[in-house]
Design a protein around this nucleic acid. Structure first.
Lengths: 157, 157
DNA sequence: ACGTTATAGTTACATTTGAAACTAATAGCA
DNA sequence: TGCTATTAGTTTCAAATGTAACTATAACGT
């Protein structure tokens, strides 16, 4: 497999973008690869989408959230959350009650079945994360955390 | 707006995932935000999708690529490339020839109109990237590059 | 209490995306 | 040469996603 090099443009006053050094491009590939690797673990096994898994993850931490609160915690929009919840409730993985003083709000929690799935998937997800992080030296890991912390506010519009 | 804290689960032997510290989750939000910020610049102005822009970017650097080679260089799959090219050719932004010795292959290049768009969008994209990077100190920028270099192989399956 | 405005959540529609099947052309090999 | 396997690229169908409109309930101001 010889590398099929192609010549750069003739005139070359065009300053084309070098995709492979372009931050947004690199981030997007890395992000997709990492997320996909994890999703592969549970997608087939439980017929569970990434959005559904994220909803389950926050419901595992916070009891009795409303759909809107789930949306905040997952950085998903309310339509995506609504759809994920519809599937999760249908599948008997999430229980949906109505708030006492406000009939608009739902009160959400994992069911027994939901917990079983969570307790299987969460360790797998953590293990995958570890696999990725172990490609980095400890100091690189720390810098990465620090960098993500700094860029986080950019992401939270 | 008081922070609506909710109690952690009672039993607490479930070890739920803390999404906001979970690498894949953070990467995905950051990646989406950054890419979207850039895409907003050209999406409306030129009715140009991110996939189409990426195709244009590699065609600006490498002349006469085939669709498959574009797919390799953009890390997109061939179906996505095929669709992006269909739109670009239709819009008169990319010229599609057939390879001399192999009638299956296309030989692609930007048209005059394509170059005009490229020369407008590329600097905008670079400027946005700079905006993001300037949130980081110089040493953090260097670490980020180094970290991405190290994780790159993970992403290139 | 009443009309207006805002909020929680769902539904509907249009667009995007992905996987698999398909077509056309080339390559490999007997 | 002729048969089979590959490769380039497109089409098709289903699932995922985004936007806007909609329903129901609650909050607010008078």
């Amino acid at each position: 497999m010889s590398n099929p090099r192609k010549p750069a443009p003739a005139g070359a006053e065009h300053a084309p973008l070098e995709l492979e050094h372009f931050l947004p491009y690199r981030l997007s590939i890395l992000s997709n690869t990492v997320s996909q690797a994890i999703a592969d673990d549970y997608q087939r096994k439980y017929d569970l989408g990434m959005t559904e898994w994220r909803v389950m993850a926050v419901l595992a931490r916070f009891h009795g959230l409303s759909a809107r609160e789930v949306a905040e915690r997952t950085a998903m929009d309310k339509v995506a959350v609504s759809r994920a919840l519809a599937r999760l409730v249908e599948a008997g993985r999430v229980h949906r009650d109505t708030h006492d003083g406000d009939k608009r709000r739902s009160v959400l929690s994992l069911t027994e079945a939901g917990w079983l799935i969570h307790d299987d998937v969460a360790p797998m997800a953590r293990a995958r994360e570890r696999e990725v992080l172990q490609k980095l030296d400890p100091d690189e890991q720390q810098w990465l955390t620090r960098i993500l912390d700094k860029l986080q506010p950019v992401a939270q519009k």
